[in-house]
Simulated scan of single mutants.
Amino acid sequence: MKLIGMLDSPYVRRVAISLDLLGIEFEHAPLSVFSTFEEFSRINPVVKAPTLLLDDGSVLMDSTLIIDYFETLSPPGSKLLPSQPQALARALSTLGLALTACEKTVQIVYEHNLRPAEKLHQPWVERVTRQLLAACAELDKQLAAQASDGVRPDQVEVTCAVAWSFMQLMLPDVVKASDFPAINAHAARLEQTDLFKRYPIA
Rank of each mutant, 00 (worst) to 15 (best):
D68A: 05
S93P: 02
T193D: 11
S35F: 12
I66M: 10
V174H: 08
L114M: 13
A163S: 14
F34G: 04
T129D: 08
T94W: 07
C160D: 04
I183C: 14
I24D: 06
A117S: 15
T129L: 10
E38S: 13
T100Y: 07
T64Y: 10
R198F: 11
T159C: 13
D8V: 05
V128R: 14
E25H: 13
P200F: 08
H186Y: 09
Q131V: 03
V59Q: 01
G96F: 04
E25W: 08
K104V: 01
K104G: 00
D179W: 10
V174T: 15
A185D: 14
E111Q: 06
L133T: 02
V175M: 11
H112T: 02
V175K: 11
A16R: 03
L143N: 03
G150H: 11
K176S: 05
V125L: 15
R42K: 14
L3T: 00
T94Q: 13
F34T: 02
S83T: 12
G57S: 01
R42Q: 15
D149F: 10
I66L: 08
A29F: 08
T72I: 09
T72G: 09
E103Q: 11
M170Q: 06
W124Y: 12
I183D: 03
N113H: 13
S9R: 00
T36E: 15
Q146K: 12
A185I: 06
P85Y: 09
L97Y: 05
P82N: 03
Y69L: 05
A89P: 04
E191K: 12
R115G: 04
L21E: 12
C136A: 14
L53K: 02
K119R: 15
L92A: 01
A145G: 05
K197A: 11
I17E: 06
L195F: 13
D68C: 04
D149M: 09
L73F: 04
A98N: 07
V162P: 01
S178C: 06
D68N: 09
